[in-house]
Design a binder for these strands. Sequence first.
RNA 1: GCACGGGUAGCUCAGUGGUAGAGCGGCUGUUUUACACGCAGUUGGUCAGGGGUUCGAGUCCCUUCCCGUGUACCA
Length: 927
Amino acid sequence: MQITKEQKRKCAEKSCEGDGKNLPKEGRCCIMARVMSELPKAYEPAAVEQKWQTLWLKENCFHADPHSEKPAYSIVIPPPNVTGVLHMGHVLNNTIQDILARRARQEGKEVLWLPGTDHAGIATQARVEKELAKENPPRTRFDVGREDFVKMVWEWKEKHGGIIIKQLKKLGCSCDWERERFTMDSGYAAEVARVFTELFKEGLIYRGLRMVNWDPVLLTALSDEEVIMTPSKSKLYTIRYRLEEDPSRYLPVATTRPETIMADVAVAVNPKDPRYADWLGKKVLRPLVETPIPIIADEHVEIGFGTGALKITPAHDRVDFEVGVRNGLQIIDVLTPDGHINCPDCPELHGLDRFVARDRSIEIIREKGLLEKEEAYDNNIGVSQRSDVPIEPRLSMQWFLRYPCVDEAMKAVEDGEITFRPAHWAKTYAHWLEGIQDWCISRQLWWGHRIPVWYRKEIAAKLKEAPKLDAQDAAAGRIYVGVEPPPDPENWVQDDDALDTWFSSWLWPFATMDSDCRAKFYPTTDLVTGPDIIFFWVSRMIMAGYRFAGQKPFSNVFFTSIVRDLQGRKMSKSLGNSPDPLDLIDRYGADGLRFGLMRIAPTGSDVKFDEKQIEEGKNFANKLYNAVRFRLMQGEAGTDPAPRFSAVHIDILDKLKQLHSDVTTALEKYEFNACTQALYFFFWNEYCSLFLEAVKNDLREGADPAVRNATLHVIDTVLRHYLALLSPFMPHITEELWQSLGFAARHDNKPLMVTPLPSPDSLLQGLADEDVSKARVIASSLYEAANRARNLKAEYNLSTNKNVRLVIKPALPVAADIPARLALLAGAKETEVAPDYEAPKGTPAAVTPLGELFLPLEGLVDVEAEKKRINKELEKLAKDITAAQSKLGNASFVERAPAAVVQQEKERLAAHEEKRTRLQAMLSALS
RNA sequence: GCACGGGUAGCUCAGUGGUAGAGCGGCUGUUUUACACGCAGUUGGUCAGGGGUUCGAGUCCCUUCCCGUGUACCA
């Protein structure tokens, strides 16, 4: 065909009307050709995602207005460590928050999603110390000094911190970035100090000498929550403690820590243990630094365990410390803060690392002939979550908090004032609160909120050693506690310690908000976080919310699953099993990553991460893109003549309406995987595979314009509605397609993300329920018949042959358009509707809801093959019939089962029998 | 030890007492004008084991085993 200059010009100007009159090449209209050449065949997410992230910000789409009249919806982000980089857990967690926030906006709410980072005391300080150690010569923070070191950390934070914020933006997170907070912002710091001061005045915060978890690497105390009990292959040594008065007799004592023997101050036995009754009150010689120590009685000792005799080392064991207090024993500390032996009386061990000393001490004891036995022993040891080394129980001067509002916190979850999902976490939460212990809040760190307590200069040293300091000491003017430094700072010395990072994080839901913001958005709506920080963070925020903001901090807590690798292991740097989300975004797109992850994230348990699933997310994006590309090739729908709708049109709108309701219900239950499954299934199967394939011919050249208009109208309706539903899950691609389809223009060119969700009720407006259900039946019959036709073709190796003819003997009234659609779907030339059709002997046939379906094979008939095929089907049918019959023949089933179930079974049987009759007729026609 | 999850197709997971499902993978065919990141067909099940309740159990109850998580710990 010759292309005229005029046609070329129109094409170039994009003023082609897409009416099929301009045919520049190969029979394509110019619009089709243009779309095909301009839009790549495969979706390319990178540029699109970048573009929309920029545009959303430019349009201020994420901004929350505290003065808005819309109902409020708010989430505060679980602040990632300022040193952090995005990992799969963050992706899961923040994708969920983003879905919730975006959907809330579509529902007409004023949405605040408040972002920020946590100063993460230990992690950040360690990060900068690592830099110092790399210097030549290496330095420590002590070389730098406190003030300069803290300055260095701030510099590091400004320069390198908050990478994760950029990464969250790449994921598409719709946080109000103007409100980004940091847990050491000045206002936030003031809030931390205020809270400390109040709790101190109330008597809930006190300073005392107590056994704490000591980290010998980080040289700081830790809270109980930061200690992980870890199974360990240890050794249990049985050591002979000789009797002072008669060194030939000895008491066997079992221990796993022989290196602390020098700190033993007694050996305890159970008072009811007959074996040792006459030993009580006598003394034994410590095997190392041989000094006599008493044999005492204490209920704590279990008669049946070990030898029944327990060495008491109050300085290095929590329980021993208590035994020591009960029995008025002295405390001998033989360990330095960094875990080395400090015992000049035992020169062989003095200065050795604790684990080296353990082996050495056993050698010495063995040489002395005092080692009775050594056996393998599995026990649990406390390991620092931070430095990954065994912690030391250590007597230390620290600040403690007796938690406020424990009862309120307990009651809130019990009564459903705050809901937990999955609900079973409420039990874990309650259990922790019931056994709640005072919180060690001081850390021997420099990076963090410094404890807002000052000691009078002249007595500072003495006060720091005081066994306990509380509100009374402040009242007496011995110490000063306050948000601002004391008015005469030259007379005071500030406490050296910093606060546990969680002591600032627990204020996050309200300390991040100014008063306007609080008035509108507090309490927040949802909290999305991992169950691993239920004690560290969630519980404490609830208590802080009630105590300091007068209300709960959030209404719903959604605990995400933990992302694991395919072997079920936690993702970790050391295992190298943790994929880099940024790399995944590069390869699959942020939308692909989000959608893929949501599809596999179950509500209750862990997610096993499989990259294959992310690839599916990407494939889905591509499918969506191409379905839109197909639409773009068709040009505008005409307005005249009036559209003529078919059953398949009504059916897809009905399914879309159902999808809308399914997605809504699933979202209300926070079932994100159910949402994405429904969205995926509808689009790929119902819309693309069935509907689009059934209507393709409506759009071809020469098609009835009334039908073409109907089809284009329905396609547009479905795409518009569907993109809106999908948008929270795949925000970038939906936005892009929304715009390229021209839908934005109908909404004042507003981005899809701020366009209200369309109502599902408009979809089937003007249609009676009866018409809709009729359409549903016709459409599903058509699709099933098409399946059967394809099956028949496949069985006769005709899958690829499009020249076959179908014949249908209708079982229900068949609308005029249906036969052609059947042919199109089944890959046939045509479908003949013939109520009185008499098939040539051996014609392949199937019983379908539409009617009896035949695949006439001119000259290719194989009667035996067809007999075999029908017999096979009859066999299967017979099984079903037998099953149904035996069920219905069972008197107690008919009597006791609900009527509806019995009725259903009867109908099933009738349908099977009907089908059998038809198949048998077909079979007998063959012989 | 105690508590809580989980065990369904080769893999990842749905499953509401009423005919066991999806996607992926495998296999066969297919480069047709939206999409090979596609299409069509097809193959996969002792629903961890045992017992019970029920007309009927993957689903409810009891029990055992396995995996995971939390928590308490005795040297």
